[in-house]
Design a protein around this nucleic acid. Structure first.
Lengths: 144, 144
DNA sequence: CGTCTTTTCTGGAACGAGTCAAGTTAATGA
DNA sequence: TCATTAACTTGACTCGTTCCAGAAAAGACG
């Protein structure tokens, strides 16, 4: 678990000003991976007291733009953020409860970039979402 | 290009009532793949005259639920629909203009279902979105 | 340390895709 | 043809997100 000064270094490294809300948001996302904006606002307020939702939205956008956070938004879900960046990993999403888990890239380190016919597109990233049922929901479904 | 009676057959096959709005929506999605809801409403109204947006939303949900349409919603885009269903194909999306093209599954017929570590999830579908730049935007970027 | 400039934060209003609810219309099947 | 029930219309409304204008704070410079 990184400390406040780690986050400060991250921010400076991205030439972003160091502010309490930014540290708090970074910390919240690190400790709550895949959290939606509302939860992040909640966690930030627990640590800092009153912070406007606007500030959190701005911070999230700034950090996402700087590559410090990654935004994911599976179908039917609101925007979620995670702190694991730069390692091209993917996600499993549970159809019934919406739980999200990380999955490393299946076939090696970054092979998903091959499409069979790219229609002339220059592809720079492949985003994969696996849909299914999480262990809890699978168990619940069987026992019913 | 399927005809109205083809669509009628599709609807009956899914035990759905055959109504003008449904035929019009099916037809619109077939002729405008990857169209967003608003465009679909526009096309449907061109063919039928007044149709409430609510009706189109209902129809889209019913048809998606019945497996006659597929809903896709890449990040930063509104919901889009397509009529190619059941063949597990994927999409390339242009980062700058939002263009979408179909891509067949890369590694064979349905291999994407393997994740390296599934965390106990039971996976039934892999959804892949390739991000990049379409031919037009690539050319435009180079020449500038 | 104090001032200036720039960026960020606050609070509130606004936006837009999508949903809800109640009543009417029309497709289906007997 | 009639009853049943699914589908459509209308209009208000929710909710995540963004925009705006002014106030506050951070970093730069003398």
């Amino acid at each position: 678990m990184p400390t406040a000064s780690d986050f400060e270094r991250l921010l400076r490294g991205a030439s972003l000003r160091v502010t309490a809300p930014r540290i708090a948001v970074l910390s919240a996302v690190h400790s709550h991976p895949h959290a939606d904006t509302d939860s992040i606002i909640g966690v930030v307020r627990q640590n800092l007291g009153a912070v406007s939702h606007q500030a959190v939205y701005d911070v999230l956008r700034a950090l996402t733009g700087a590559g410090l956070l990654r935004k994911i938004e599976p179908q039917g879900s609101v925007a979620r953020y995670e702190a694991r960046v730069g390692d091209n990993h993917h996600h499993v999403v549970c159809r019934s409860c919406g739980a999200i888990a990380d999955v490393d890239c299946a076939v090696g380190h970054a092979p998903c970039l091959d499409a069979s016919d790219d229609h002339g597109f220059v592809i720079d990233e492949a985003e994969v979402i696996y849909w299914g049922s999480c262990p809890e929901c699978t168990t619940a479904a069987k026992s019913s």
